[in-house]
Structure formats: structure tokens, C-alpha cells
Amino acid sequence: MKIKYSEAWCLKMADLELGNEVGAGVFGLAQNVAKDAEYPTMHSSTIPFGRFVKLMRRNKRLTIEKLAEDADIDLDELIEIEDNAGHVPEPRTVYQLAQFFEVPTNNLMQVAGLSSTRDERLVNESMKFAARSDTLAPLSPEEKAALEAFVSILGRK
């Protein structure tokens, strides 16, 4: 069947609908509770996720600001992801990063500790990756300059 939706009607309704949930249909409370139990508690460490994001960014020669802009994510959160192992990333951010880096959302979600499924192989590989990617290489001139500049700022009274 063909329905004639006018643009004006659609937009009037969209503006009215903004901020409202619209779902309808019966759900089983007991079934929900049972299935909720299948969701494991968040992984305690998201170190592999932060390392992955940082290395992918560096591999693409992007600054944090540029990655945040290109992937349409919040700069503050990107900094948290790369540098705070305890940070729980927002779902949308992981989704955007998966799209940007062209990796499967499901897998990246799991590495980020946001998945209900737990693939042991992926968990093990993530930890190996985190261990191997902790480089002992000396700082590049740019890193050294940035570090010294920051130390200088930290030293200001």
C-alpha cells in the first residue's frame, strides 16, 4: 500500500516525537530478567581497547583531535579511552570507531568490554596485543618535545 506522507507532516511529528520513547508491544518481565542475567559484568580492563585505538590512530598519522573530528566522537572521551584503562567507553563511541577503522562492531565492542558475548580467543589475543604493543622504543623527537613541554607546564606554579 502506498501512503502519502507530506514533508510538513513528517517534520511536525518528528519535532513532537523528539525526546519521547515510542515502543509498543508486550514484553515478558520474567523473560527479560532471565536474559539480563546472561549479560556478564563489564571487563575490568579496557587496556587493549585503548592501545588499539591509539596505535590505529598513530598508524593513520592522525592527531587525537583529528580522529575525534573525523570519527565524530567526543575529544574528551577519546583521551579517556587512550589513557585511562578503567574508562568505560560510550556505546556510540565504540560504534563510531568501529565504522571509522573498518573493523567489526561486535569484536571491537568485546575488546571494549561492552559485549554480552565473550570469545575467549579474542580475549586472549587482546591481552597479547596489549602486552606486545607496550613499546620500549625511545621517544620520537615529537613525543619528547611534547612531553617536555607538558612537564614544563606541570612545573609551573
Binding site: E21, F27, N32, V33, M42
Partner: peptide
């Protein structure tokens, strides 16, 4: 799944989770 995990991580009461979640 990501949204549900975010709800769990934030300690949101199950009553406030999206009811169509499963």
C-alpha cells in the same frame, strides 16, 4: 548490547532499562 552494558556499568535500575531489550 552496548546500551545494555552501559546501563549495567552505570548501575541503572533494571526498571529503567529499555523494556524491548530482548
Amino acid at each position: 548490547d552496548m546500551i545494555l552494558q552501559a546501563h549495567r556499568a552505570a548501575g541503572v535500575s533494571l526498571l529503567k532499562w529499555p523494556q524491548s531489550r530482548h
